[in-house]
Design a protein around this nucleic acid. Structure first.
Lengths: 374, 374
DNA sequence: TTGAAAGCGCTAACAC
DNA sequence: GTGTTAGCGCTTTCAA
């Protein structure tokens, strides 16, 4: 530890040595010493030390006198205490999407309630890098400043291994971890597989038999949703319809995938877009094909970000409780920091299907319903 | 400063005293001492101390030996160095909008390049509070952990005053400061007044004579845009049309304001929404009134967030270079931290009109043009 | 630039 | 719970 001993201002004069004699230097206030506080408060240095470290009880009266003296002298009783800071590691993302914004806000709120501050730390590394070859951001290289990390964005199991060998407590957002078999200890999940399954069942329930999926399966979040989608279809004896896409993600991906699906000889009557941005692309493709949503094509998204309600017609989507997710991540991490020996567990948050106006009965159903009505 | 003196592990045995005799305690590794590094490197403790503090030159050969020894023993040569952290204060906001997300990302990028980490610090306080009555987040109460603050969100001049008396260097995002007369020193602005003026001139150029404004003037960002709007109208001899709104902001505000404007006996042919969210509300109101955009009503927004391009028809808006804004904020702050005596200056970033599909010629113009064509 | 040694600020051990 | 006192870990001084 550094001891910011201001020897240049030795003694009590307050004037810097070397000042021209006779010059009335404004007495630059020295950094106050613990011993001075003790003297001013009429207690021993040990008591002040004890109060500061919190390692032993101090009588209320004593405490009060010390606090008052410290205040008077401008002595920081918290100095030397390790800062309570955790890092929000956002891996391999170039922008902070509303999704992760909300996770960040939730995490910060929980941290603030527990007197921790949150460091926003974007970080890029190759997905295939081995644990040992990863060089963490400098501020994580020791536990001096940062007590732990929430690991969000897209990550590899290798990074988590690296953090473990570094001795830094962490919790990961489990859904976007590449190359992990099964649920990962120390991760918090949201149930996107279940949500996707529920959404797909809802579409099937509307009478759709040909339901397309717009997503790039090389990205873990799309892959997981595809999994739920597939499960629901299998349960109804239907086959998946996937647009083969090489665009990575977002609106463009959704547009291309939807176009490919709609060009088929037997096009889908509903499209499940891997996320709300992709759904925006699907909307564009539908417009291009002259298809009215939801009369001729049903569209659904995922994540229920602001975009979902901004689209016209409003998008049916699956809500992820992002702020809650952030809070859970923070809570789990703080527990691990404060009780390192407590058993790590994997936690999964539910998702919620939000029905809006972008999904309707399948065209055939509609015709049948109309016929029945007539 | 705390001296984490592990007296319980005194000596070199590594075994905790009090362990049952004969029990082979795994020698818990003690925190290594500076003196040990010195011994291992074959130099004096003073040299190691000098290397760590950087206050005196160390010969390259010596440095190398010390670094190697420290590495071997797991001694952190950076310990005791003040962490390079700045705070991103987001005041009086409940959510992290894409706008501020981008500012945050830009600021972080600049900080990372200069070896600073960025703390995400939402903060709520009453707009009318006096400087002295404000209690800052605890982590800002001394300069031990945080070296400075970027002040974003909605702020009062009192907060800036408070930070100054606290001795914490700061830079503010100037556009949303309440109760400041004229540009404020130590603030970075983006030219929303100019952008609003340019946008309004563009609408006038399209032939619109009745241009409405949807915004709540009690909010500083809307008020500034109204100012530019008013200037452009005045230049063309036109009068402002403002929907009187008590809803605070966003889509709802835009909807209500637009409805009120469109109910007038001489309704506007174009509406300038104070921001893109408000424009969304205007779109809804237009739909309700059976008006087609842009044929019967032109709509423009501000900020050019993702929403602008997501709306249909795509929204004409004024782009704010948010990431650049973040970088400028960070750059200005780091300069003030490293050269506290350098003159503070107010800086303004330009904005850019992005023409999309939501604005067209005024209905009268169109009729004239059609007549000419016929 | 370096080491020896003095010194500083703080903490821990122990007595009451 | 508090003061006394020893002493730790680091920094600075000083001389070379």
């Amino acid at each position: 530890m550094k001891h910011f001993t201001p020897r240049r201002y030795k003694g009590t004069s307050g004037a810097a040595p070397g000042a021209a004699p006779g010059t009335a230097m404004p007495p630059r206030p020295r950094r106050p010493r613990l011993a001075e506080v003790a003297r001013a408060a009429g207690v021993s240095a040990a008591s002040v030390s004890r109060l500061m470290s919190g390692k032993a009880r101090v009588a209320p009266a004593t405490r009060q006198r010390i606090v008052a003296a410290a205040e008077r002298l401008g002595f920081d009783l918290a100095r030397g205490r390790q800062p309570r800071i955790i890092a929000f590691l956002l891996s391999n993302r170039n922008v902070l999407h509303p999704f992760h914004s909300a996770v960040l806000v939730g995490a910060e709120a929980y941290c603030a309630e527990h007197d921790y501050a949150l460091l926003f730390l974007p970080y890029h590394y190759p997905a295939a890098a081995a644990a040992k070859s990863l060089s963490l951001p400098e501020i994580l290289q020791n536990r001096r400043t940062v007590s732990g990390a929430i690991v969000a964005g897209t990550n590899s199991a290798a990074l988590l291994e690296r953090l473990t060998t570094q001795g830094l407590p962490w919790v990961a957002l489990g859904n976007n971890i590449l190359g992990a078999q099964g649920p990962c200890n120390g991760a918090v999940y949201f149930d996107d597989i279940g949500g996707a399954e529920q959404l797909t069942k809802y579409l099937i329930g509307l009478g759709h038999r040909r339901v397309g999926f717009a997503g790039n399966l090389r990205l873990p979040w799309y892959a997981r949703r595809f999994q739920g989608y597939q499960a629901a279809l299998a349960g109804a004896g239907l086959t998946p319809m996937l647009g083969e896409v090489h665009t990575r993600e977002g609106e463009e991906m959704g547009y291309v995938a939807a176009k490919l699906l709609l060009q088929r000889s037997a096009p889908p009557t509903a499209i499940f877009a891997g996320d709300d941005s992709a759904a925006r692309g699907v909307y564009l493709a539908a417009r291009d094909c002259g298809l009215e949503i939801p009369r001729q094509l049903s569209v659904a998204g995922f994540n229920d970000t602001l975009e979902a309600a901004a689209l016209h017609p409003k998008l049916t989507s699956v809500r992820v409780f992002t702020e809650e997710l952030g809070k859970q991540l923070a809570e789990t991490l703080l527990q691990r920091i404060e009780r390192p020996d407590s058993p790590p567990a994997a936690l999964a948050l539910p998702t919620l299907l939000i029905q809006r106006e972008s999904c309707g009965p399948a065209p055939l159903h509609r015709r049948l319903a109309a016929a029945r009505g007539a």
